[in-house]
Design a binder for these strands. Structure first.
Lengths: 252, 252
DNA sequence: TAGTGGTCTAGACCACATT
DNA sequence: ATGTGGTCTAGACCACTAC
């Protein structure tokens, strides 16, 4: 009985390649299949699984794209080490990454319609006369202020979000629920010396640095649903991310 | 004569799907195919191109993955707007992005073997006794200092790189040439107040902020080939990136 | 030479959205 | 009912790597 004897639900709407990919992925994650180990050839897998080779290839492609497997022409398909694996990019790491046991808190310090400045109107791609809502929040951990979050959101979307929601949930989660799932966007990460009001809010010492993140978020239809300006205490926050093939390129 | 009458080089080692994908992509980028416009159905394209439907699907998949096209079941395949498009993540944006007409310069201020500190040995996954080379560079634009780049590189790799190479080319380009193509990695972006020596090197005013990028780069075999610590003048540098499905997730 | 993955074909059946 | 994309099959030939 091979470890590749996977189960297949033929009535499930989940496609075959997805079912097998999930099970194969689990084998790798649980290290039943260890680093460097080779998979049976595509022909063998096709016969073992009772599917065609294109389907086997699709399964393997899924995992190869996620960096779990590497295919080498003329050699075979083997398991990549954790180190070689491209972990999914992930952002917004928090101090030493440990949220467990911490006590994060969000305070909503502003939730009101504002007049749109000309430049913000352009960024949001709205007519200058449009109304937007400015949401201002502070985030703290164990009572220590961490960040000031300021977001501009079109009025019609903001109406689906309440002030109390914001204390319990992330903005993106709420936008999603409101039917505006964040889909794409751009962000700039920069640094500067904190301003007077930022120093006050973040309990910063004089002239200490802050990390800034400015982002534009769009829903699936390309509509701008959020314009965020976030300011973090630099000593307690950094952004961590995986870098892979596409987003390589040397930094200047 | 349809705009989809692409050319096909049958002797080229470049696969068919890639040749067609490139030409289709060009149509979209030049806006011959405009936002919202529909492609012929996969069957029609297969017949026009003289290839099978799976090949057509592969062509379309390439562009759909890059966010140029969107496929909707039962409806068809259409061109995404620039806004909806997920532009490839790209980092290391420079002032206002304009390198054109600028005069970037790299000065190598250090290129020597050093004793490996214990913590760096662990990061590079080398025995503590191993020797590494520390490369220190400064980058400036039009005579204005922009960044201090410090990299640790295993000795055997550094031997394939010369000091003069570094003045002309990027480190990653040189690593690539040396047979250690950067493959994956992790980086942390943070901010802090510049140290005394950094203030001097970057001509920073007292207590000005710097943006820091620390990265670990690995080659295809999972070997650590670079440990970089980069410090940028915050007023003149920021990191810009696209955010998509995978690397979404709310920032804390 | 044998075995591997890479590409491609020519179909089939299905689920989905529109008419 | 029609046409679309989504899945899957059962082959074929090629290019690459090892032996």
């Amino acid at each position: 009985m091979s470890i590749f004897n996977f189960s297949l639900n033929k009535v499930s709407p989940q496609p075959v390649y997805e079912q097998y990919a999930l099970q194969l992925r689990a084998l790798i994650e649980r290290e039943v299949l260890k680093e460097g180990e080779f998979l049976p050839s595509e022909f063998e897998l096709a016969s073992q699984w009772g599917v065609s080779r294109p389907t086997v290839r699709r399964v393997i492609s899924e995992l190869a794209n996620d960096g779990f497997l590497i295919r080498r022409h003329g050699i075979g398909t083997s398991v990549l080490s954790n180190a070689r694996r491209r972990t999914p990019a992930y952002h917004g790491v928090f101090e030493e990454l440990q949220l467990d046991g911490r006590n994060p808190k969000t305070e909503v310090i502003g939730f009101a319609r504002i007049d749109l400045s000309k430049e913000n109107a352009i960024s949001l791609e709205l007519p200058v006369s449009s109304e937007v809502v400015r949401i201002q929040r502070t985030r703290s951990i164990d009572g220590v202020p961490l960040a000031i979050l300021s977001n501009l959101i079109p009025v019609d979307i903001s109406e689906k979000i309440s002030r109390t929601d914001l204390q319990e949930h992330g903005l993106y989660e709420l936008l999603d629920r409101a039917g505006h799932k964040p889909f794409s966007g751009t962000q700039k990460i920069g640094a500067r010396t904190g301003s007077i009001s930022e120093r006050k809010r973040l309990s910063l010492e004089l002239d200490k640095a802050v990390l800034t993140i400015d982002r534009i978020t769009r829903d699936m239809h390309g509509r701008v649903i959020d314009l965020g300006n976030h300011v973090y205490r630099a000593e307690r926050y950094f952004v961590e991310m995986a870098i892979g093939k596409e987003n390589g390129g040397e930094f200047l």
